[in-house]
Protein backbone atom coordinates (compact mmCIF):
# COMPACT_ATOMS: atom_id res chain seq x y z
CA UNK A 1 0.00 0.00 0.00
CA UNK A 2 2.80 2.38 0.89
CA UNK A 3 4.51 1.74 -2.43
CA UNK A 4 1.32 2.16 -4.36
CA UNK A 5 0.66 5.68 -3.10
CA UNK A 6 3.33 7.64 -5.01
CA UNK A 7 2.21 5.88 -8.18
CA UNK A 8 -1.35 6.87 -7.47
CA UNK A 9 -0.31 10.46 -6.87
CA UNK A 10 1.64 10.51 -10.13
CA UNK A 11 -1.26 9.01 -12.03
CA UNK A 12 -3.61 11.61 -10.70
CA UNK A 13 -1.13 14.39 -11.38
CA UNK A 14 -0.89 13.06 -14.92
CA UNK A 15 -4.63 13.18 -15.26
CA UNK A 16 -5.01 16.83 -14.47
CA UNK A 17 -3.54 18.24 -17.72
CA UNK A 18 -5.56 15.72 -19.69
CA UNK A 19 -8.58 16.76 -17.71
CA UNK A 20 -8.09 20.42 -18.45
CA UNK A 21 -7.17 20.23 -22.10
CA UNK A 22 -9.34 17.38 -23.41
CA UNK A 23 -11.58 18.72 -26.15
CA UNK A 24 -15.23 18.67 -25.11
CA UNK A 25 -16.70 15.52 -26.62
CA UNK A 26 -20.35 15.55 -27.58
CA UNK A 27 -22.49 14.56 -24.68
CA UNK A 28 -19.94 15.29 -21.95
CA UNK A 29 -21.23 16.60 -18.71
CA UNK A 30 -24.11 15.27 -16.81
CA UNK A 31 -26.02 13.56 -19.60
CA UNK A 32 -26.87 10.04 -18.54
CA UNK A 33 -25.51 7.21 -20.67
CA UNK A 34 -25.54 3.46 -20.40
CA UNK A 35 -22.28 2.11 -19.02
CA UNK A 36 -20.46 0.09 -21.67
CA UNK A 37 -18.49 -2.96 -20.64
CA UNK A 38 -14.68 -2.63 -20.74
CA UNK A 39 -13.71 -3.01 -24.38
CA UNK A 40 -10.04 -3.68 -25.02
CA UNK A 41 -8.70 -3.05 -28.48
CA UNK A 42 -5.28 -4.47 -29.29
CA UNK A 43 -2.65 -3.55 -31.86
CA UNK A 44 0.91 -4.70 -32.36
CA UNK A 45 3.62 -2.11 -31.86
CA UNK A 46 6.68 -2.15 -34.22
CA UNK A 47 8.93 -3.56 -31.48
CA UNK A 48 6.68 -6.55 -31.03
CA UNK A 49 5.07 -5.52 -27.73
CA UNK A 50 1.33 -5.41 -27.55
CA UNK A 51 -0.28 -2.04 -27.25
CA UNK A 52 -3.92 -1.98 -26.31
CA UNK A 53 -6.49 0.27 -24.78
CA UNK A 54 -9.10 -0.54 -22.20
CA UNK A 55 -12.19 1.59 -21.86
CA UNK A 56 -13.63 1.52 -18.38
CA UNK A 57 -17.31 1.66 -17.52
CA UNK A 58 -18.96 4.96 -16.78
CA UNK A 59 -18.86 5.46 -13.04
CA UNK A 60 -21.39 7.72 -11.39
CA UNK A 61 -19.76 9.87 -8.74
CA UNK A 62 -21.28 12.56 -6.59
CA UNK A 63 -19.77 15.11 -8.96
CA UNK A 64 -21.12 13.40 -12.09
CA UNK A 65 -20.22 10.54 -14.44
CA UNK A 66 -16.57 9.62 -15.08
CA UNK A 67 -15.21 7.32 -17.77
CA UNK A 68 -11.53 6.57 -18.30
CA UNK A 69 -9.61 4.97 -21.16
CA UNK A 70 -6.21 3.44 -20.36
CA UNK A 71 -3.56 2.60 -22.96
CA UNK A 72 -1.15 -0.24 -22.11
CA UNK A 73 2.14 -1.11 -23.72
CA UNK A 74 2.52 -4.66 -22.51
CA UNK A 75 1.92 -4.32 -18.74
CA UNK A 76 2.89 -0.67 -18.67
CA UNK A 77 0.35 2.15 -18.67
CA UNK A 78 1.35 4.67 -21.34
CA UNK A 79 -1.69 6.92 -21.38
CA UNK A 80 -4.83 7.66 -19.44
CA UNK A 81 -7.60 9.57 -21.14
CA UNK A 82 -10.76 10.87 -19.56
CA UNK A 83 -13.60 10.13 -21.95
CA UNK A 84 -16.26 11.55 -19.69
CA UNK A 85 -15.92 14.03 -16.89
CA UNK A 86 -18.32 15.92 -14.70
CA UNK A 87 -18.83 19.61 -15.33
CA UNK A 88 -17.99 20.44 -11.76
CA UNK A 89 -14.51 22.04 -11.61
CA UNK A 90 -13.76 20.70 -8.13
CA UNK A 91 -13.44 17.17 -9.48
CA UNK A 92 -9.73 17.77 -10.04
CA UNK A 93 -9.40 17.31 -6.27
CA UNK A 94 -9.45 13.55 -6.80
CA UNK A 95 -6.12 13.30 -4.95
CA UNK A 96 -5.63 12.11 -1.36
CA UNK A 97 -7.82 14.15 0.92
CA UNK A 98 -7.17 15.19 4.48
CA UNK A 99 -10.01 13.03 5.78
CA UNK A 100 -8.58 9.84 4.27
CA UNK A 101 -5.04 10.61 5.38
CA UNK A 102 -6.29 11.26 8.89
CA UNK A 103 -8.13 7.96 9.06
CA UNK A 104 -4.99 6.14 7.97
CA UNK A 105 -2.84 7.89 10.60
CA UNK A 106 -5.11 7.33 13.60
CA UNK A 107 -4.37 3.66 14.10
CA UNK A 108 -0.61 4.19 14.41
CA UNK A 109 1.50 4.40 17.57
CA UNK A 110 3.87 7.35 17.51
CA UNK A 111 6.90 8.43 19.55
CA UNK A 112 6.40 12.15 19.10
CA UNK A 113 4.31 14.74 17.25
CA UNK A 114 5.47 17.45 14.86
CA UNK A 115 3.51 20.68 14.69
CA UNK A 116 2.03 20.06 18.09
CA UNK A 117 1.46 23.33 19.87
CA UNK A 118 2.56 26.89 20.12
CA UNK A 119 1.11 27.75 23.52
CA UNK A 120 1.48 25.98 26.82
CA UNK A 121 -2.33 25.97 27.18
CA UNK A 122 -2.55 24.20 23.85
CA UNK A 123 0.09 21.74 24.96
CA UNK A 124 -2.11 20.44 27.77
CA UNK A 125 -4.74 19.50 25.20
CA UNK A 126 -2.31 17.99 22.74
CA UNK A 127 -1.39 14.50 21.77
CA UNK A 128 2.25 15.30 22.57
CA UNK A 129 1.29 15.95 26.21
CA UNK A 130 -0.32 12.52 26.37
CA UNK A 131 2.78 10.90 24.87
CA UNK A 132 5.06 12.70 27.33
CA UNK A 133 2.89 11.67 30.28
CA UNK A 134 2.91 8.08 29.09
CA UNK A 135 6.68 7.96 28.63
CA UNK A 136 7.54 9.63 31.93
Amino acid sequence: MKRALPVLVLSVAGLIPVWRYAPPAPGTGTTAQAAPAPAPTASSAPDGTTRHTVTGPTVTTEKGPVQVQVTFDGDRITAVTLLRQPDHPQTTAAVPRLVEETLRAQSADVDTVSGATVTSEGYKESLQAALDANGA
Binding site: E101, A105, D111, S114
Partner: peptide
Protein backbone atom coordinates in the same frame (compact mmCIF):
# COMPACT_ATOMS: atom_id res chain seq x y z
CA UNK B 1 7.15 23.07 20.42
CA UNK B 2 6.42 20.55 17.71
CA UNK B 3 9.77 20.72 15.92
CA UNK B 4 11.64 17.45 16.20
CA UNK B 5 15.25 16.28 16.03
CA UNK B 6 15.38 12.48 15.83
CA UNK B 7 18.78 10.85 16.39
CA UNK B 8 19.09 7.17 15.62
CA UNK B 9 15.80 5.56 14.87
CA UNK B 10 13.55 4.93 13.19
CA UNK B 11 11.34 7.19 15.28
CA UNK B 12 7.66 7.34 14.49
CA UNK B 13 6.82 11.00 14.16
CA UNK B 14 3.15 11.94 13.87
CA UNK B 15 2.11 15.09 12.04
CA UNK B 16 -0.51 17.08 13.89
CA UNK B 17 -3.85 17.47 12.18
CA UNK B 18 -4.11 21.15 11.17
CA UNK B 19 -7.60 21.47 12.63
CA UNK B 20 -7.45 19.26 15.72
CA UNK B 21 -4.56 19.20 18.23
CA UNK B 22 -5.56 15.74 19.46
CA UNK B 23 -5.34 14.01 16.08
CA UNK B 24 -2.72 13.13 13.49
CA UNK B 25 -2.92 13.43 9.72
CA UNK B 26 0.26 11.50 8.86
Amino acid sequence: GGDVVAAGGPWRVGVRHPEDAGRLCA
